[in-house]
Computed example of a mutant assay.
Amino acid sequence: MGNQMTEMLKGTLEGIVLALLAGQPAYGYEITARLREQGFTDLVEGTVYALLVRIEQKGFVDVEKVPSEKGPPRKVYSLNPQGREQLAEFWRTWSFLAERIEQLHDDKER
């Protein structure tokens, strides 16, 4: 990923992860794998784990420890009502920014 992509991703990764969790609960590695399937191939697993700690501390997710066949229990994250509110705010902000950026792009094309 280029430097510009990395910087933009830093600002949006929380919303992206919340959107994934809105679909279904998941544990850290599972979230990383889904992001990679979506094309975020250079995403470092540690980045996702650090983000999960932050959104847990902010109260956006509920965490359940689920036994694992391979080692210690997994922390499964699910979006809670506060996280859904945060996700809705993310989508409102994203829509606003995307519209303005598209408008700037269209104005330059004319």
Rank of each mutant, 00 (worst) to 15 (best):
M1P: 08
G2P: 10
G2I: 06
N3M: 13
M5W: 12
M5N: 15
T6V: 13
E7Q: 12
K10S: 10
K10N: 13
T12Q: 14
E14F: 02
E14I: 00
G15T: 02
V17R: 07
V17L: 09
V17F: 04
A19L: 02
A19W: 08
L21K: 07
G23E: 15
P25M: 09
Y27F: 12
Y27A: 05
Y27S: 07
Y27D: 04
Y29L: 10
E30K: 04
I31F: 06
R34E: 12
L35F: 08
L35Q: 01
E37Q: 10
F40C: 03
T41S: 14
T41D: 13
D42A: 12
L43K: 05
V44T: 11
E45W: 09
E45L: 11
T47R: 15
T47H: 04
V48M: 06
A50G: 09
A50E: 11
L52F: 02
V53Y: 15
V53R: 14
R54L: 07
E56I: 00
Q57I: 04
K58I: 00
G59R: 02
G59C: 02
F60D: 04
V61F: 01
D62A: 06
D62T: 14
K65E: 15
K65V: 09
P67V: 05
P67Y: 10
K70I: 09
G71I: 05
G71L: 02
P72I: 07
R74L: 14
K75A: 07
Y77I: 04
S78M: 06
N80F: 03
P81Y: 06
Q82F: 10
G83F: 07
G83D: 06
E85Q: 09
E85M: 04
L87N: 02
L87C: 03
E89G: 05
F90I: 02
R92A: 08
R92T: 11
R92I: 08
S95Y: 12
F96P: 00
L97T: 09
L97H: 12
E99N: 15
E102V: 07
E102W: 10
Q103G: 13
D106H: 12
D106C: 08
K108N: 07
K108S: 11
R110E: 11
R110I: 03
